[in-house]
Amino acid sequence: MLVRDDIVEYSLDAHHSEEEGKLIRKKIWKVTAILSIITTVEVLVGVFFPKADVSDTMWTLIKWGYIILTVVKAAYIVLVFMHLGDERKNLRYMILVPYILFILYLVFILVTEASYVNDAWEFLK
């Protein structure tokens, strides 16, 4: 087997003790419960309050509820499961700030442009 001694696999902060592990596992199970409960709530709302059966105002509320719950789930996955919450602050911001700014702008501009295109279609009818 070819031995590469120019590649050095190193790691920083890759160890913790038995006691620390216990606490971390407790946190993992707590987040598991939270994610499961949120998903269950989403599914139950989807099954018992489908778009066809509720008023438009109600649907808008449910829709925003879904989006908020989705972001909460995403935050738990990124901050706890991916351990970004435990990383140094500058790494956290370097990853999250550009991403969030860019996505928010993208969603904003596409929704805005979509409404203009939509108006143009209505006008042409």
Partner: peptide, 23 residues
């Protein structure tokens, strides 16, 4: 996913016949 949203909202006919999530 943003493009999906754009497609849905950009055309009134599509928006009207877009399948409902639960279904």
């Amino acid at each position: 996913l943003s493009a999906l949203g754009f497609a849905k909202f950009a055309n009134p006919e599509w928006a009207a016949s877009w399948p409902m999530g639960e279904e």
